[in-house]
Amino acid sequence: MDKVMSDTRIEDGAGTVAENGKRVIVEVTDLKKYFPIRSGIVFQREVAAVKAVDGVSFRIFQGETLGLVGESGCGKSTTGRTILQLYRATAGSVKFEGQEITELKGEPLRKMRLRMQMVFQDPYASLNPRMSVGRIVAEPLVIHNIGTKKERQERVAELMDLVGLNPYFVSRYPHEFSGGQRQRIGLARSLALNPSFIVADEPISALDVSIQAQVVNLLQQLQEDLGLTYLFIAHDLSMVRHLCDRVAVMYLGKIVEVAESEELYTNPLHPYTQALLSAVPVPDPKVEEKRQRIILKGDVPSPINPPTGCNFNTRCPVSIDVCCNEDPQMVEVLPEHWVACHRVM
C-alpha cells in the first residue's frame, strides 16, 4: 500500500510534496500499535496483544482537515495518539513535516511537540481541576520556557480572546465553566505554542448539540486564521461531512476507505462505509422515509484476534471466498478515492 501511495514523493526540508502539488504535513505509513496483555504474578509474560491499530497508512496535506471516522473501539483515538507519540508505535512510521518522529526521544521530541498538539474529547477530564485557567493556558509556555511572566500573561489573554473567552476569567477554575467553555480553554492551551498540526480527538462528542456548532465553527475560523491542519477524529458523520476536506473510514484497526468528503458521502464504495453512512438520518422527511439502513450482522470481532483476510469479512453482506484469505490492499479506484475491498476492484 505504501508503495502505491508514495510513488511521486519529493523530499524538501519541511515536508514532502505530493503528486497533486499539495504539501504533506503528516505521513503515516503502515502504523501499528499493539497493547500487550500480560499475565503472571511477579514475572509477567505477554500472552496476547490488542491490535488497536493494525497497519494504517494515510497522508494529511497542509491546511486541510482529515476526518477519521469509525465506530467505538476501532482505533481512531489510538491512531491520533500514536501520531503524536503519546503512545509508542509498535511498528511503522510517522513522518511529520518530512521528519521521522517515531524514534524521537527526550529533547528532540519535546521540540517536536511545539508543532503538533491535541484537543481532547472530555472537557471535564482534560483540564486540571487544581489549576486556574490562566495557569492551564500558560502551561505550554512554562514547559517550554517561553517568554517572561508578563509576556506569558499577555499571550494568555490573547489566546483566550482568540478562542472567544473573556480574558478576565484567567484566575477562575475549570469547574466554574460549562463544557463548551472548557473545550475552548483546552483549545487555547493547544494553540499556545503556535502548532501547525492539531489532532482533535472527538472534540465535540461530549458537548450539547448547540455548543457543538459553536466549537466546530471556532475550529474552522482558527484554521482559516492560523493555517492549521487538523486530524479530526469523530463518530458524528454529518459533522465530519460539514467540517472535513477528506475522510478516512476505520474499521477494527484498519483504514478501509479514504476519499474527499463529498465523494465519500455521495459515492461510498466499501460495504462498511455504505453501512455506516446508511445510519445517518437525513433532515428531509421524504428522503428519510425512503432511507434504507444496512444493518450489519453480528458484533465487531475482538481486536485481540481479528479475522484473517479482510477483517470485515465476518460481517460483510457481500463477502466472497477471497475475502477470508487475502487481506485487501488499498487501491485508488477513482481519483483521490482509495478503497481496500476485494469486491470493489
Binding site: R81, L86, R113, L114, S126, N128, I143, G186, S190
Partner: peptide, 8 residues
Amino acid sequence: EAARALGA
C-alpha cells in the same frame, strides 16, 4: 495526557 502532549 495533555501535559505529556505539551512535552511536560
